[in-house]
Amino acid sequence: MRRRVAPAAVLSLCAAFSLCTACNAIVGPDPPASPAALFDQVWNDFDLHYSLFVVKQVNWDSLGAVYRPRALAASDPEGASTVIASMLSKLQDDHVLWRGSRVGTQRHGDYFAPTVTFGKYVQYGGDLPGGISYGVVSPAVGYIAFSTFEGSGWLSSVDSALTLLGGVNSIIIDVRNNEGGFLENATGAAGRFADRTTTVAYVRYRNGPAHSDFAAPMAQQVVPAGSRRFVGKVYLLTSRNTISAAELFVLSMRALGNTTVVGDTTAGETGNPFARELQNGWSYQFPESLELTLDGHWFEDIGLAPDVTVENSIDEINNHNVDAQLSRAIGLAAGKP
């Protein structure tokens, strides 16, 4: 009798463990994937988590009232997807991604990347992994272009660029065509120019159902980092194509001091993206935070104004080989006011 009891007990425990279907019943079924349910999930998700209603001044309830009947009228989920994308585009937020694609843009006017930098103004040094190009304007003035803040291991390229520029006295850093990337790369790059830990900006995260519910401001700091720190003067080139993490870099460099920002106002597109998914597997992203300057103002849809405003024109660049912004920065580096 005793010999039979122990195996029976073990088998009973194993049988109990296999009752996972009961677990699914307790957790409950997934929501339906009907057009109405998908629309409601997205609308509710934005309502609870999107951080920029306070800036956009969009009446989200009204948008829901307008677009929900259209979603319900859709014959299939793909039709609902089109309706949802149309609704999200009204936010005019480049950080809103619907199924991997941007559905809104708030850029004002045409933007372009200067193409006459190397050859006319800068003696080309080389390209480094992570979209970093470097060169020298003169023996005393270096030039680095960060085309992105994306990528792991990106900061090592910054160290390499600073090492390769050797003993220049000042550096022109070009983020005019930088659409952002990882925040840690932006602050990490700024750390190569920092001599002490410095608060450079604040960020507030949405933390409640009201559109104005935010957690307390959290300081964003730059910590001295890197194998080589540059302590000379920095001239930072910006444009309307300086976006997101690149704008945090601008805030960082400005807060560190010793930096003059030259060019045009930045894009004013902020917000740490929050990734979400729907019950049918569709994915989307939107900002869950609000970036603030050191004096506590948001700059979403406003941008960061330069210290020295210089506007480029396509005509000057394409037809006359003139990059007025870079030219001005070079002049400032040479001591010309």
């Binding site: 960020v203 995260y205 933390n207 959290m218 935070s289």
Partner: peptide, 13 residues
């Protein structure tokens, strides 16, 4: 926490 806490430990509540 109300949302993802990677960058926002103050979301703890």
């Amino acid at each position: 926490p109300y949302a993802d806490v990677r960058f926002a430990p103050q979301l703890m509540h």
